[in-house]
Design a protein around this nucleic acid. Structure first.
Lengths: 203, 203
DNA sequence: CAAATATGACTGTTGAGTAAGTTACCACGA
DNA sequence: TCGTGGTAACTTACTCAACAGTCATATTTG
């Protein structure tokens, strides 16, 4: 059969992989793993489906690669900030600021880890666990510190508060995705105003 | 062909529908619309797939019925509390308490409205919009009131804070699903302690 | 026996994954 | 500087399984 469109376009593997990952991360993060159509990713990247399978092996393999790239960015930044010497609310605000800055041009990446339709066993589940644990561990540590300042040490309370904190970050990220004109710096400032409003509105 | 298992089992339609909805809501809410297998719901309810199609027409029809049942419960309760006369943080805490109580035996229902894999057009999308708007409208109103106490009136700030507030409720619900032994009353008390910790931990 | 409740066994489509090949690039020898 | 062969990049056209949805038929109840 005539396959007149085949043949290399001179794009080296690494570059093509990275381009595919960019497209795939956005699609996976917005549609969810199960709903995502590999064909659509191929079209979005301007290539054919088999090339994706050549490079990533399977849909899971592709998703895994997306997770790893995103996970290193997010977990790396959170760990970097945890190693600074802020505590309590201050540490929370710095973490938010860090997230806004590293994810400014790829805001959706955060959502890759909150996908109910992703496989719950195998390497994907392992990677999700790995990164969420790295992130949750530091969140939990920060939250425990904050709560201790008010004399709360109950493990369940700390665990619930950690869930709430992660939920807050998640909400802000989602809100940010829907407001593409807002800069990272603007988001940091906004977060500060929201905090102040809570603290001031209680009387 | 011999279909020896057919024939009525004496369960009237309304009762069967309601039983199917209970099973379906839980599966849809935990797996997501796209990943959910109708066959699995049928097995969970101890009936066959065609019966579901007889009663609900399609997968979307079934999901829609779940949404409507859950939506009325949640939106109804939030509206009831909004008509009371609390404001600010107090109103937020009462809303939480209301949610914990009406959803105590069906905690996952809340998640039905946060499904990225649900259809984005047609009657399902319309229902999701209808209920999230009813809920968000009241949340936004409450949040605007709270923020006004601190002198914040910026629309974007209020909108972001509403997103955060809904995210907090969502996180607590999710945490609750993972801690089935906690009662509604315990959750309300816990929420109070978490709030106090934030307010106290800032100095 | 009419209507309601119920099912086994099918169809059709969608989409993950693959087989088999085509085309461009590049290092090397003459 | 011009073949030439090896390899990396790339595609068309398929297979196959899962699952939404349907059809024809069976059983019970009033």
């Amino acid at each position: 059969m005539a396959q007149s469109n085949a043949g290399t376009k001179g794009v080296p593997r690494f570059e093509r992989e990275s381009q595919i990952l960019t497209v795939a991360s956005e699609v996976f993060a917005t549609e969810g793993f199960a709903t995502t159509n590999i064909q659509a990713i191929a079209e979005g990247a301007g290539i054919s489906k088999p090339l994706i399978y050549n490079y990533f092996g399977s849909k899971e393999g592709l998703f895994l690669a997306c997770l790893e790239r995103a996970g290193e960015i997010v977990a790396g930044e959170i760990e970097r900030i945890a190693n600074e010497d802020s505590v309590g609310i201050e540490r929370g605000m710095r973490t938010l600021d860090g997230m806004f800055h590293v994810l400014e041009d790829q805001r959706h990446l955060w959502r890759l880890f909150y996908d109910r339709t992703a496989p719950t066993t195998g390497p994907v589940a392992a990677a999700v666990n790995h990164y969420t644990e790295r992130i949750t561990k530091l969140a939990d540590e920060g939250v425990a510190e904050l709560m201790a300042l008010s004399g709360v040490t109950d493990r369940l309370d700390v665990s619930a508060m950690t869930a709430v904190w992660m939920g807050i970050v998640d909400s802000l990220m989602r809100w940010w995705v829907e407001h593409p004109d807002e800069s990272a710096a603007a988001m940091t400032e906004r977060s500060g105003r929201l905090l102040a409003a809570i603290l001031g509105g209680v009387q």
